[in-house]
Nucleic acid binder design. Structure first.
Length: 728
DNA sequence: ATGAGTCCTG
DNA sequence: CAGGACTCAT
């Protein structure tokens, strides 16, 4: 029977096994963005960043990545086509070539001067390597060096010049497909290169250089003219084929472009109404821009690509395809510019501001992310946590409704609710709500979960700390099934500072509430903010030195929630492997949460890391205690997991409360007990099942518990958090 | 190189 | 809790 010391051993074991959770956030964000396919988001983002992003990115955001993918493909294809035809025509290669030549000339030291007249040798040895970039490069590269000890340098010079000319011809031909400017410049460069050729002489070769050259010369063409002809003939065929393929690609791109265009306008139509009432979302703004310049956009988009006839296309060389793609990019940039312009005009009208845009964009993004996360959480919890015969958690809901003061008409609720961002068991207002002035759908629409902190009841009679109730000794009145009769929740001793995952869990997961937020029916109702604020006031009052920033105080009240979210959501990546909804995992960082909730706090590195530190520590403590008590229960001979009941009298609860809520400043939400119990059960079961042999066995538990997390109380998001608390 | 976040230790 | 090592990502 393992005692709880094992924990430390295991901790040590898992030392290097930890999963770094902050890894894929950005990916997640972007993938979610894509998955969401929300034009609201995309447009907003595009508008917000358009000026900073390059053309490709703008285009991607604006018309969707499909198009840009096509463009990229086209560009890529174009260049690969060129590569295939004549590598020398590749701008990259040319650039490289010219650069290296220049570098060579610029080298003062003779020792390091590239032995240009040494290059012809490869001509004699090579067998028409005409398609590999490497060979081309090698051949052209002034870096190529061979031992010339036995060679007639003059002859080689001659040959080399011949080869060089052929190559330049080759390049020029290849460049026919490129924009004139480039071709011309390259041509000139090449000519210059030829002219200055004979000035370079060979002085010496290092062995290393020789080796490098030897490697290369095997691939170099022996007969430049011959290989060139082969090149041309081969590439002519390739040209035809490539042209055909490019044509197909372009046609495909046209199709996609049209589709995107249609989609774009459809989206505008669908969101048009949402922008009514002076609430201009990014989407509507953008769409307005589109419609405002409808004819022009149509022209821009269709004229260059869609309207181009196939015949015309067929006559286009690969360079023209590239031009086509570039033209598309330009068009997109232009469109983007118009968007920005339109946006600017709106802004000048006072309808919106860039700041608002960014803010709203962020909010929208967060909502989308959380929605997706919530889905995953729901599904996972439903599948894993409640796969067993349902425990009486459902009864928590009515009981909580009884115990909490739901004041849906509380004006504070609405103002705060509009700012509400929830994590963990995410409850968000609908994405559009985040935009300025968009009213909440309904006063009764509960978009928030239970606050983490409940104000102490006015009747501050302390609950009897009955030491009798211990883990492994179920107490009827404390069992979840009898929570509705349990008055303990109202009882002031329920003051726990940290997040209470189950608040969201009970309602959302158990009741199967929509992941996008509590519906008005599923939600427990709005929490009376005054309760929590009053509760917090106590804390605040005792922490006047932190008056400017409430966050230093808050970690104690939000730490575990944040920690849970933070630590476990990272594991959603793992869960995504299990979940059929694997596309929609989410991960939040502490810092982003902190910054969102404590907007009045000027976060710097120090503050952020300190808070993170606190959260980590809080979280750690929670789980350490869980494991400890689970092992203790096992040691005590508890056989069935259901015999483990966490109540207000449980030692576990006391320990936690002592740690997080020493002064009992906070009323601990009922759901905390639920989550604590579930956590304990998880640990117990895992240990009993010997899953703890796995160094990372806790992670599975983290996953489960993470999903029970409830959101940070909305009050914390208020910029006037402190004032509000003190006013209570 | 730096930051975010976790894990371990004291 | 804090310090610091460590990992991972940018």
């Amino acid at each position: 029977m393992p005692d709880h010391d094992t924990e430390f051993h295991l901790n040590r074991q898992t030392k290097r096994r930890r999963v770094d959770i902050g890894v894929k956030r950005i990916l997640l964000l972007s993938s979610l963005l894509r998955a969401a396919k929300s034009t609201v988001i995309i447009d907003a983002m595009n508008s917000h960043h358009s000026k900073k992003q390059d053309v490709l990115e703008c285009q991607e955001a604006q018309l969707g990545e499909a198009k840009s993918d096509v463009l990229r493909k086209l560009l890529k294809s174009g260049s690969s086509y060129e590569d295939n035809i004549i590598h020398f025509s590749s701008a990259t290669i040319i650039t490289k070539l010219l650069k290296s030549n220049k570098a060579t000339r610029g080298t003062g030291s003779r020792e390091s001067v590239i032995p240009r007249n040494a290059e012809p040798e490869p001509l004699q040895k090579d067998t028409c390597s005409n398609s590999s970039q490497e060979s081309a490069e090698a051949y052209l590269s002034p870096l190529g060096k061979i031992s010339l000890n036995h060679l007639d340098s003059e002859r080689l010079n001659e040959e080399y010049l011949q080869a060089k000319r052929a190559r330049v011809e080759n390049i020029i031909r290849g460049m026919n497909h490129l924009p004139n400017v480039m071709a011309t410049s390259v041509e000139k460069d090449c000519e210059r290169e030829l002219e200055g050729e004979t000035e370079i002489t060979v002085q010496s070769f290092s062995p290393r250089e020789s080796n490098r050259e030897n490697k290369r010369k095997q691939k170099l063409p022996q007969q430049q003219q011959h290989s060139f002809q082969q090149l041309v003939s081969t590439h002519k065929e390739q040209k035809v084929e490539e042209r055909r393929q490019l044509k197909l690609q372009l046609e495909d791109m046209q199709k996609q472009l049209r589709q995107l265009q249609e989609k774009f306008f459809q989206i505008y139509d669908s969101t048009d109404s949402e922008a009514d009432g002076g609430n201009l979302s990014e989407d509507s703004v953008r769409s307005d821009g589109m419609l405002g310049d409808d004819s022009m956009n149509e022209h821009l988009i269709q004229n260059s690509v869609a309207d181009r006839s196939d015949n015309e296309m067929a006559d286009l060389g690969p360079g023209c395809f590239l031009d086509e793609a570039k033209a598309l990019l330009r068009e997109q940039a232009l469109l983007d510019g118009k968007m920005a312009k339109h946006e600017g005009s709106l802004r000048s009208k006072g309808l919106m501001s860039l700041h608002e845009v960014g803010k709203h964009l962020a909010e929208t993004l967060k909502q989308e992310l959380n929605s997706a996360m919530s889905q995953v959480v729901d599904i996972y919890v439903d599948m894993n946590v409640f796969s067993k015969p349902p425990r009486p958690l459902l009864q928590v809901f009515p009981s909580l409704e009884d115990h909490f003061v739901f004041n849906r008409n509380n004006p504070d609720f609405h103002t705060a609710n509009q700012r509400l961002q929830c994590f963990g068991n995410v409850i968000f207002p609908s994405p559009l709500d985040s935009f300025v002035g968009v009213p909440l759908p309904c006063a009764n629409d509960q978009t928030e979960a239970l606050p983490l902190v409940v104000r102490k009841s006015a009747s501050e009679h302390h609950q009897s700390s009955d030491p009798g109730a211990q883990i492994g000794h179920p107490h009827p009145s404390l069992h979840p099934s009898s929570l509705s009769e349990n008055t303990g929740f109202i009882s002031p001793s329920f003051r726990h500072p940290f997040s209470l995952p189950l608040a969201g869990y009970s309602f959302q997961s158990t009741l199967g509430a929509s992941s996008t937020g509590y519906s008005s029916k599923d939600s427990p109702g709005s929490m009376d903010l005054s309760r929590e604020t009053t509760s917090l006031r106590t804390k605040m009052a005792s922490s006047q030195h932190l008056i400017r920033s409430c966050s230093p105080v808050l970690p104690g009240s939000t730490a575990d929630g944040l920690s849970l979210i933070r630590s476990e959501c990272g594991d959603l990546q793992d869960m995504s492997d299990i979940s059929p909804y694997s596309g929609s995992t989410i991960s939040f960082s502490y810092s982003s949460m902190l910054k969102m909730y404590f907007c009045d706090v000027k976060f710097n590195r120090c503050i952020t890391s300190q808070l993170i530190k606190w959260f980590s520590n809080f979280r750690e403590f929670y789980y350490i205690q869980m494991e400890k008590f689970a092992r203790q229960a096992i040691n005590d001979g508890v056989a069935a997991v259901d015999d483990i009941i966490v109540s207000h009298e449980s030692e576990l609860y006391k320990v936690l409360n002592m740690h997080y809520n020493k002064a009992n400043d906070f009323e601990v939400p009922e759901s905390f007990l639920e989550v604590a119990q579930i956590t304990l059960h998880e640990f117990f079961s895992a240990i009993v099942a010997s899953r703890d042999v796995d160094p990372s066995w806790k992670k599975a538990i983290y996953k489960v518990i993470c999903k029970l997390d409830s959101e940070v109380p909305q009050i914390f998001k208020s910029a006037n958090c402190v004032q509000e608390l003190l006013q209570e």
